[in-house]
Design a protein around this nucleic acid. Structure first.
Lengths: 103, 103
DNA sequence: AATACGTGCAAGGAAATATTAGCAGGTGCC
DNA sequence: GGCACCTGCTAATATTTCCTTGCACGTATT
């Protein structure tokens, strides 16, 4: 799987994942560095349950990745970080992406 | 209003507008040239009413524009065309956009 | 007048999303 | 034991979006 340009379906999922104020803020926060769920929720001022849902959607779209680590004091911490990406949106790129839509 | 980079809210609306197979196909079809509603609906194989809704959303996001014209045989034709745009999506651009979110 | 083309809008229900609240489990510390 | 952290899941409820159906109005042709 080489990271050229996403398929139409992938692009739709990616755009849908980013088309939300909450998730955009999550991406912004993670762009500043990796962080674990509870701390991130506090930083953003939203509930942990809500954050979990949004993180899952971002992860499903391939925009973030998670790594479960055990801290020095033995707590299981789930660290999320941004997966580097660069997508260019123009009428032409959309035209090419739409050719591979299966939905 | 200069077309630098969109505000956070505008970007969310733009992404939401594009995050749909139907609307992506509409953009692709219009990228090939302007067209009027009924013909576009036939080209895409969807109902005119459905197309109207999607066109409105795209227009609200500033991705397409419409021009009402009267054809030679006196019919009112509404031509849609793509508004040229180029948006770059990276963690950094999202970070900057999120700073202007009002929602 | 009936047909064929173009336009638009709005109500209604189905389907998908978003959000909250609550439960369960883990470790370490006083 | 009880508290303070960390994690994850589910059920239930709002809210939003999506799509269809049907109506209304216009002009030109037969």
């Amino acid at each position: 799987m080489d990271e050229g340009s996403p398929t139409g379906d992938e692009l739709v999922a990616l755009l849908a994942a980013l088309a939300s104020p909450h998730r955009m803020r999550v991406m912004a926060a993670l762009a500043g560095g990796r962080n674990y769920v509870s701390q991130l929720a506090r930083d953003l001022g939203i509930s942990r349950a809500l954050l979990q849902v949004h993180l899952k959607k971002l992860e499903a779209a391939g925009l973030v990745s998670s790594a479960l680590e055990v801290s020095e004091d033995g707590k299981a911490m789930n660290y999320y970080e941004v997966v580097p990406f660069a997508v260019r949106l123009t009428p032409e790129t959309l035209e090419r992406a739409s050719a591979t839509l299966t939905l």
